[in-house]
Amino acid sequence: MSVQALVRWVAAGLAALVVSAMPMAASAQQPSKSSMALANEILDIKGSLQIFETVIPGVVEKSKATLLQMNPNLFKDVDAIGNDLRKEFAPRLAVLREEIAKIYATRFTEQEMKDTIAFYKSPLGKKILTEEPNFVDRSMAAAQDWAVKLNDEVLQRFRAELRKRGHPF
């Protein structure tokens, strides 16, 4: 998967997470252990956390780049510290996993999660899991192309309307 595709994939995942979590704020009920286990199974089947595995290394690398712009002579130390920080912060992915599992466990009943698991283990569910990353990547590319064309059309209309009002464009 390309870096651009990964960024789009992460952005889509984060947007879905934010939208999913909104109604949960009103309900502070803690899900049962069995609900959490089912939610975690869904996360495993879907490979949901793979899109977030690059976040911690990416944040560390971005911080490194910022520091090295200020002082390139610090490369050796900044690189060593970066390696240590990646290891130190890696367990935080488990915290994110727990939060995502809670979202599933509070928004779906145990039966719904069991049905979801059964679906994703079915031939169609497996096909969706296989095809979804490609579908999302192509959808994002199509949306980006569409937005560029729309932007060009809107800009042309602005210029035409401005010319009608006597502005040179």
Rank of each mutant, 00 (worst) to 15 (best):
M1P: 11
A5H: 07
V7D: 02
V7N: 04
V10Y: 03
V10N: 01
A11E: 12
A12N: 03
G13K: 02
L14C: 10
L14D: 06
L14G: 13
V18W: 05
A21S: 12
M24L: 13
A25F: 15
A25S: 10
S27W: 11
A28I: 03
S32Y: 12
S32R: 15
S34N: 15
S35C: 08
A37R: 11
L38P: 00
A39H: 05
N40P: 05
E41W: 06
L43S: 09
D44E: 11
I45Y: 00
I45G: 01
L49F: 07
L49C: 00
I51G: 04
I51P: 00
I51S: 08
F52M: 10
F52Y: 13
E53D: 14
T54M: 05
V55Y: 04
V55Q: 05
I56L: 07
G58E: 10
V60T: 06
E61H: 09
K64G: 01
N71V: 07
P72N: 11
P72E: 06
L74R: 09
K76N: 04
K76Q: 10
D79L: 00
D79E: 08
L85I: 12
L85A: 08
L85P: 01
K87G: 09
F89W: 11
P91I: 05
P91D: 05
R92Q: 11
L96W: 07
R97S: 00
K102H: 04
K102D: 04
I103W: 01
Y104H: 06
Q111D: 10
M113K: 06
K114E: 08
K114N: 03
D115H: 07
D115V: 03
T116I: 02
A118M: 01
Y120L: 00
K121V: 00
K121E: 01
S122I: 12
P123K: 12
G125W: 02
K126C: 00
T130N: 02
P133K: 03
V136P: 00
R138F: 05
S139D: 07
A141N: 13
A142I: 09
A143P: 03
Q144H: 14
Q144I: 12
W146A: 13
L150W: 11
L150K: 12
N151C: 12
N151V: 12
D152H: 15
D152I: 13
V154W: 10
V154S: 06
R159Q: 13
A160H: 12
E161S: 09
R163K: 15
R163H: 14
P168F: 07
F169R: 11
